[in-house]
């Protein structure tokens, strides 16, 4: 188990190094941030001074070397626009995105998995067909459009929920979050629902497919032959067997929601990381872009590690392989 963890951490480190090089080169290739930053009327001397100050006159390899050295000492640089340490900037936005992503995943899971179980258990029922039809809508209708409809319906027409922004932020277990106040929760409902629809559709279909396959398996028939009821068969025999694809997709979706909730954050004016990265791309704020992308890679690596550990918990056959 420890050996497995160690191996995975090494792999993760390698992925992060490779990604940092790719990101650095990619960002280096897209124009000169100084031209965006300074007054077009500024003279050549000032321009050259600024370029030298940010080290942009150095060869790429040298720039990367300095960047890597700073990162290793915990310094991701300073935003060229906000004049703040990048880490502080990103972390100030992170809780908003995290609570949005978490709420969306919770909604998708709590609604999607039970619906998927039902649709797989009674595939011919009318209700199952309705569920499956809605799930297709869930992941084929564009997020921005659904977001606009939600605002139109709940904020404009019915007027029971706010149309955007993050509400009052309270503290829960020492963490600043909107979940601590009723106003905050009201602000969270629409964007979280909007963000959850795609994942909900995905989870419904995955769960149903797993259920349908598992319900005709011999071990289910054997469990029934022992006199177990359908509830026990589903919740104690089947669910653990079909959990691996569900957990995999859950992990990937959670990662991509954290990293790329841009559309929803923009529509609902949610002050999360997605808006930060779009702003920094527009203003060519290199340190923010680089740090953000590396943070995203880091998040994915961590989530995948957790998912891999979950596999071992769910399936003993994987556990034995990992240990040997």
């Amino acid at each position: 188990m420890l050996g497995f963890l160690f191996q995975r951490v090494l792999q993760a480190a390698a992925v992060i190094v490779v990604m940092s090089v790719v990101v650095f080169i990619g960002v280096y290739a897209i124009g000169n941030p100084i031209d965006v930053m300074i007054d077009p009327a500024a003279d050549q001397k000032l321009r050259a001074a600024l370029i030298a100050r940010y080290g942009l006159d150095q060869p790429l390899v040298v720039q990367y070397f300095y960047f890597a050295k700073n990162v290793l000492s915990g310094d991701l640089g300073e935003s060229m626009v906000y004049r703040l340490p990048v880490m502080q900037l990103i972390l100030s936005r992170f809780p908003a995105t995290l609570e949005l992503a978490l709420s969306a995943m919770v909604i998708a899971t709590v609604v999607g998995i039970p619906l998927g179980i039902w649709a797989g258990y009674r595939p011919d029922a009318m209700s199952s067909k309705v569920i499956m039809g809605l799930s297709v809508l869930g992941f084929s209708v564009p997020t921005f459009w659904v977001g606009l409809l939600l605002i139109l319906a709940f904020a404009v027409e019915i007027g029971i929920l706010p149309s955007g922004g993050r509400g009052t932020v309270g503290t829960l277990f020492g963490i600043p979050t909107s979940l601590a106040t009723w106003d905050g929760i009201q602000h969270l409902i629409l964007p979280a629902l909007n963000l959850s629809l795609f994942k909900m559709g995905l989870l419904i279909r995955l769960t149903r497919a797993g259920m349908q396959e598992a319900m005709s398996a011999d071990y289910v028939r054997f469990a029934r032959a022992q006199g177990l009821g359908d509830g026990e068969v589903i919740f104690r025999h089947v669910l653990k067997n079909i959990a691996i694809p569900i957990v995999t997709v859950f992990g990937l979706e959670f990662g991509s929601t954290l990293a790329f909730a841009v559309v929803t954050e923009t529509i609902f004016n949610w002050p999360g990381m997605g808006k930060l990265i779009i702003d920094s791309i527009i203003t060519l704020d290199r340190p923010v872009m680089v740090a953000y992308l590396i943070l995203v890679v880091f998040l994915f690596v961590v989530i995948n590690l957790v998912v891999d550990l979950a596999y071992g918990q769910l399936d003993p056959r994987i556990r034995t392989r990992g240990a040997s």
């Binding site: 054997f222 022992q226 104690r236 025999h237 769910l314 399936d315 056959r317």
Partner: peptide, 18 residues
């Protein structure tokens, strides 16, 4: 026939308690 992700004991105990 046996559920691959549950121990022999837990499957059999479930059958007893059914």
């Amino acid at each position: 026939t046996l559920n691959p992700v549950l121990t022999v004991g837990s499957q059999m105990a479930m059958a007893v308690r059914a």
